[in-house]
Design a protein around this nucleic acid. Structure first.
Lengths: 217, 217
DNA sequence: TATAAAACGGGACATTTGTCCCACTTCTTA
DNA sequence: TAAGAAGTGGGACAAATGTCCCGTTTTATA
């Protein structure tokens, strides 16, 4: 759920410090709640997050949001639009204060062609993104919400970040009402702790429950 | 829904015809119903479809399928696994007889590094795939099935291909029962023709109906 | 051509999810 | 500190979707 890319971050640190072209890279800061990128806009920079957490989401015309990922250190965004000049697909919104490298499209394109390492990092990043998006789209479509919610809470516990409830619901593509209802059911089954939304099981027990969903739906 | 990539196909035709390295590329044929790639396998080739149509889908442990795309001429598959050596994410199954270029991973990697055009084509392909997957995941999650079904039927009419009902349902991530029910509702609203599943509206009328969904859900 | 196998279409019912609404808390800020 | 705004949690009902099942039609094949 919170993607990071240490290799990309490391590359940028090196690149800005040691290369002449690195001077074209600016560092921008964004307050929590502001957007790095606005869906539908045409942009001229690619961002690589240096610090902070953002959410990447589509706002549908009916007013609902669908969050794809939370992006942290080293994640790149605006890259799709840098590679194929199209309007921005998603909103990228800071949910904590964010600082990011801003790379002009000209430099971005130049790096893709002239820097093998950068090109490689970009390819791998795109591949990871496709894999994760596909895996999630599939199980959110084919398993009950309870299953997806448990997986989400497990991830949240591993990385210890706190995501607003509203955003978790949007990540699952459901309403807050459904989200709350499912939480309550999990509590009544003693899978979550009585008040909060923490998983009240050992890793092993959790896996056993997830497996049960998978064995027969 | 049926993705194709003429530029990729064209590249392969040129490459196999004119380059020495092209000799490493084999042409394989697959009967309808057989798989080019099996989910979970480790593979050593990338395929580019020369002729025919395949479906790209994940089989979940609970027995349900989720189809991401139907892939036609010029589409590449096995590329994710060629870039990052991981187990296959999806099944690729021929739904018509298929012939495809089979490119060994060694050559694939070599092309990515040494052939700027190929690298470029690959980047663009990945970007397109991400965009489409994201867009679809979002609206399938946030709009009623009726909306997604209409969009699907509109696409099917444009390209004129026939997809089995079972597969259309899997593409939408729903059961055949729900699929039939929705068809019936659309017929009773005179949006589809009385017997079949063809859209019985002008392009304009259809867009009007889709817009209504988008304006308020 | 006869028969089995597969696809099709839909009724009846259960489950899941959304919508609407309200009471209660918490947070702003005038 | 009071008043309004925003967030929380959940009841009641409506709508959407899945499950199970059965009779019909189409397709494949012996």
């Amino acid at each position: 759920m919170l993607r990071t890319n240490p290799a990309f971050l490391h590359f940028m640190e090196q690149f800005t410090a040691s290369s002449a072209e690195g001077e074209a890279v600016a560092i921008k800061t964004f307050a929590a709640g502001t957007r790095l990128i606005r869906q539908g806009d045409t942009i001229s920079h690619v961002y690589i997050i240096r610090e902070g957490i953002t959410k990447c989401y589509i706002e549908e015309d009916n007013g609902k949001d669908y969050i794809f990922e939370f992006l942290g250190k080293g994640e790149i965004t605006g890259d799709l639009e840098g590679i194929r000049k199209e309007k921005c697909l998603c909103n990228i919104e800071a949910i904590t204060p964010v600082t990011a490298y801003a790379i002009p499209h000209t430099l971005f394109s130049w790096l893709l062609v002239n820097n093998t390492e950068f090109n490689r990092l970009m390819l791998e990043e795109l591949v990871i993104r496709i894999r994760q998006t596909c895996i999630r789209a599939s199980y959110q479509q084919l398993y009950p919400v309870e299953y997806a919610l448990l997986r989400l809470l497990a991830l949240e516990a591993e990385q210890d970040i706190v995501i607003p409830k509203k955003d978790m619901a949007s990540y699952l593509g459901i309403t807050i009402r459904s989200f709350n209802r499912t939480l309550k059911e999990l509590r009544s089954k003693n899978i979550l702790d009585p008040q909060g939304m923490n998983i009240d099981l050992s890793r092993k027990q959790l896996e056993e429950i997830l497996r049960r969903f998978e064995d027969m739906g």
